[in-house]
Design a protein around this nucleic acid. Structure first.
Lengths: 151, 151
DNA sequence: GTACAACTTGAAGTTAACTTTAAGTCAAGG
DNA sequence: CCTTGACTTAAAGTTAACTTCAAGTTGTAC
């Protein structure tokens, strides 16, 4: 019993605008079959995909990153727990780093920044994982930012 | 003894491109005095401001938010520990929420998403702080996203 | 069978946060 | 003084992630 959803039903349930759903389809993040007249019809499991996209977008991951992650899921059959776990492994590192950076910023607001060390090289905030060491004076920042941050 | 820095010195030490520094000045995030010939000269404390901007940008805060936060600092005199603490109070809430969301996403990748509950309303990931309750079926997302996420 | 909302497409518009370009001006060494 | 690299501005270009628009088509309720 495959109950198909229209684009406005999916929009309501996922929280995304219909225009965003069409965009995501063009970008290959979600799929939809078509009615005889050519209108989009979504299978229910696309809602889970969209909830995942929303959560990932919310924390700042780009659509490119999300598409890459979703490509680890099987096409055709319904994703299993093991399939989602693959995505977990592919992101855990970055999420851990991002959480550490946020905690540093939060705690730094009471400590590190207050103490004035922000301009120093060894500060936890500007160099939270002691990855970058010898690069001249001044603040040195996180390698591989999770958020796009061109410089 | 006020040692003033040129734009390329500040660029090297802060990690920002010179074009970004000029942009930040137009946007009112940093200030610079001028040489007799009209070139920018930065005071050293601008480096701390820039380190703060970099850390905040890295975790996804917008320049508008950062400018608002920096406006809590005094103009003219050097910011004290108490001044930075004001910024801490203004952001703590959002940073806590963001950290919670990231942890939910990270942990959800091993648990919540794997179990398939992502499409359910009461899921921690789609509703991490039980703030939004009665809004129809389907996934409901975080109020006031930290990252810009138009919908 | 006829309204009318919901849907379709392609193309153009939007916003943030910069970067690039063009055409010139400043600063410092020799 | 002259050269050369660093600097200036204003304006236009860039990218991601969408939204809006225009013009037409579909689905359904009466």
């Amino acid at each position: 019993m495959e109950q198909l959803l229209t684009i406005s039903e999916v929009a309501d349930r996922s929280g995304f605008a219909a225009s965003a759903l069409r965009y995501y389809e063009r970008e290959g993040l979600v799929q939809a079959t078509r009615s005889p007249g050519g209108q989009r019809r979504y299978e229910r499991h696309e809602l889970r995909r969209l909830a995942f996209i929303a959560a990932a977008r919310h924390v700042g991951l780009t659509l490119d990153e999300i598409r890459d992650a979703l490509s680890l899921l099987p096409t055709g059959r319904n994703p299993t727990k093991a399939d989602w776990a693959k995505i977990s492994r592919s992101w855990r590192h970055r999420l851990d780093a991002e959480i550490a950076a946020l905690e540093s910023l939060r705690d730094g607001l009471d400590g590190c920044i207050g103490c004035g060390c922000l301009s120093l090289q060894r500060c936890r905030l500007s160099n939270p994982r002691d990855v970058v060491a010898p690069r001249g004076p001044g603040a040195v920042f996180l390698p591989e930012p999770l958020h796009p941050h061109p410089e």
